[in-house]
Design a binder for these strands. Structure first.
Ligand SMILES: [Mn+2]
Ligand SMILES: [Mn+2]
Ligand SMILES: [Mn+2]
Ligand SMILES: [Mn+2]
Lengths: 141, 141
DNA sequence: TCAAAAGTTTAGCATTGTCTAAACCTTATG
DNA sequence: CATAAGGTTTAGACAATGCTAAACTTTTGA
């Protein structure tokens, strides 16, 4: 039945959702990247993560602390980083979503570079409904 | 000629761009909202901004300080907030972009609510190239 | 084998963005 | 026109995300 929502309420809901998306964003990108490195090289080291993210080493170390508090990664001092079960799940969900968004942009006709760059930010703000629409578009097109 | 960029470089470029997008994001949303309020009511008051953004009053006040340091807004103590020339320009650019992204999502077939919410985050990560592709899609469809 | 290189951690700092609570002005109305 | 209600500002706290520099550990290779 869907009552009409007053527009200021709806408006603030959008900003609130965006802020929530941003909170989740960093963790998602980290675990996805860690999963990628493990697939590629068998392990994820701090330096490699820092390199690919374009941040300093110490930043990665600090973030790892948070991620392990969140139960997403595991690590021993001076050793490589691994994902927990939960971490793997998040990585896989993230990867799937990322691929749909990037593939969608390509299907829309943008260059590979642009699709790659834009999708890195866009992926975090795409709701289930929009993701479905993007997937549909790629199939039909 | 476009040399092949090593994939780790390109990868970090995407994250770096996303971080830059996020830095610009808050200012953009604020000025756009202030412009909207001025159009609607003739002035933008702190409370209204806070209401629509879904944040506390004090948060808005502190942000205003930053925005006026950035030369985007002007205000006298205890008075409403106004945009500088630069502020208006940013607001207008933002609005245009926002409308294209939101309209595009609608054209893609998502609900009005979803288009409204998702576009609030997505708009900040859409490059000129992607924006053009979205505009094209809406026309052709 | 053992010193240099490579990688990791820690300390200390800055900025952004958020909050609550309290103090302070402005406005509206009885 | 005095005061209550409604806005605004300030103070103080906190978490997240980034940085550099220094200390420390592990790995590598002469
Ligand atoms: Mn991703
Ligand atoms: Mn991302
Ligand atoms: Mn974002
Ligand atoms: Mn926005």
């Amino acid at each position: 039945m869907k009552r009409k929502i007053p527009s200021s309420k709806l408006r603030s809901a959008a900003f609130t959702r965006t802020r929530a998306d941003h909170q989740a964003e960093l963790s998602q990108d980290y675990v996805e990247l860690i999963a990628e490195l493990i697939d590629e090289k068998g392990e994820a080291r701090g330096t490699d993560i820092a390199m690919r993210l374009g941040v300093a080493n110490a930043t990665v170390a600090k973030t790892m602390k948070r991620l392990s508090d969140q139960g997403l990664v595991e690590q021993e001092p001076y050793r490589a980083i691994f994902l927990t079960g939960e971490g793997w799940k998040m990585a896989e969900d993230g990867k799937r979503k990322h691929q749909i968004v990037e593939g969608f942009l390509l299907a829309l006709g943008v260059s590979a570079e642009t699709a790659q760059v834009d999708s890195e930010g866009i992926e975090h703000h795409v709701s289930a409904e929009t993701l479905k629409a993007m997937a549909r578009f790629m199939v039909r097109r």
